[in-house]
Simulated scan of single mutants.
Amino acid sequence: MLVAAMAALACAPAAGAVAAEPGSLQGEVNAIKGTGSVGVVAESTGPRGHRFATAGQADSSTGAPAERYDAFRIASATKSFTATVLLQLAGEGRLSLDDSVEHWLPGVVSGNGNDGSRITIRQLLQHTSGIYDYTADLPVFASTAGFLADRFASYTPAQLVAVAMRHAPYFAPGAGWKYSNTNYILAGMIIDRVTGHTWQDEVTTRIIQPLGLRHTRVPGTDPFISGAHLHGYSNFGSGPTVDVTALNPTVGDAAAEIVSTTADLTTFYTALMRGRLLAPAQLAQMETTVPAPIWPNARYGLGLWWVPLSCGGGYFGHSGGAPGYNTLAGATPDGRRAAVVASTGDGDADSQSALDTLLDQQLCQAGR
């Protein structure tokens, strides 16, 4: 629920925002802009049709406004793509979700109490492996100075996993739930091993091309976003705000590398929920969830959050947070309603609440 200061924004749009009726998509985008975001783009689809709204700037240095088709770093929403490929491979009989990590990646998960023979692919995808999150131990995510020093550094997946292996696991495999990007770095490595192709190639040929996601890229080592895009801005909690758009995406790899748009993410999550990418058995496994105490009453499946809606039921989707970028995307289980929103800048303590509210209200209103 929005705090009083946020509610006031419905009557007084933020600077650079289009005036809108309270409760409208534009009003909700204006509210996000009012929390300190630089630019915001959003789309909503359902039986009532297709809507989009924008607020703020795509580039604060030029004053260029945020536009509907601007691309952005989707960060951890990448996980839904990676998990989909692994579930496709399971459906083809090329692996089992109950295979151990050790079976496919001998010796990679070891040391300091880590044991890949006790961790399954399913546990990687559901964040129940207990493996340490490597992002907590990289300077590029820690401070403005660390980011500026390392933003163009290139990492291999093995190097990222090695960072995590310097730490003991959070808990024994299957004994708890803890979000860890390392799980999806390993998932990408397993895709590489099973198929003989990179996970980037598999996502491209299995998802991006068949769905016609023309503005979705898996950029590899390219630190720049081509074409029209939102610039990201961050002060990493203190110090001056800097443009953080340029970043070597290998630091996110199969956990957070993809660049996309609200339109393409809408197409992806809608297609996923409608069974266009997975057979019923694999989609059912993807949607089998465990409690995930980050959002109230939220649960986590295999590369998907399940989040309850105020109007009843819930939606499947994913959030994504990278320096300077924040994304939230989701669709109802029948795929008839979907909403996606992306914002740039650090915002403030109310920013995530405002994004959550947009998805809740749009997915509820779209069904009325």
Rank of each mutant, 00 (worst) to 15 (best):
A77N: 06
A83F: 00
A58T: 08
A53Q: 03
E43K: 11
V85Y: 13
G63F: 15
R51A: 14
Y69R: 13
G46H: 08
T78I: 01
Q88G: 00
S76L: 11
R68D: 00
A42K: 00
D70Y: 04
F52Q: 06
R51K: 11
K79W: 12
L87N: 04
A42S: 07
S44L: 07
S76C: 08
P47Y: 15
A66H: 04
A83R: 03
G56W: 03
T54H: 11
A83T: 04
A42L: 07
A71H: 14
T45D: 15
A64H: 07
E43H: 09
A55E: 05
E43S: 06
Y69Q: 07
D70E: 03
F52N: 02
P65F: 10
A77Y: 03
G46Y: 10
D59K: 13
Y69I: 04
E43P: 03
F72T: 04
G49T: 07
F81K: 05
L87Q: 06
Q57C: 09
A58R: 02
A55V: 12
A66G: 12
A42V: 02
F81E: 06
A75P: 01
G56E: 02
G46T: 09
F72V: 12
T84D: 00
G63T: 08
A66M: 05
G49D: 13
G63V: 09
V85E: 14
R73G: 01
K79N: 01
T84N: 02
R48P: 00
L86K: 12
A64R: 10
S80Q: 00
F72C: 09
Q57M: 09
T78S: 02
R48M: 00
A42W: 06
A71S: 13
A71E: 09
P47V: 14
S61G: 11
A66S: 09
A53T: 02
A58F: 09
T54E: 11
S60Y: 13
H50V: 11
A55H: 13
A42M: 08
S60E: 15
S60A: 14
F52I: 15
A53V: 01
S76P: 04
R48W: 01
Q88H: 02
T54V: 15
I74G: 08
L87T: 06
T54S: 10
K79V: 15
L87Y: 03
T54L: 15
A77K: 04
A83M: 05
I74W: 01
V85W: 11
V85P: 11
D59R: 14
T54Y: 14
R68A: 00
R73T: 05
L87H: 02
A71K: 15
D70T: 06
G63W: 14
V85T: 14
V85M: 08
K79H: 05
G49L: 03
P65W: 06
E67R: 13
G46C: 06
A55Q: 07
A66C: 08
H50Q: 12
R51W: 10
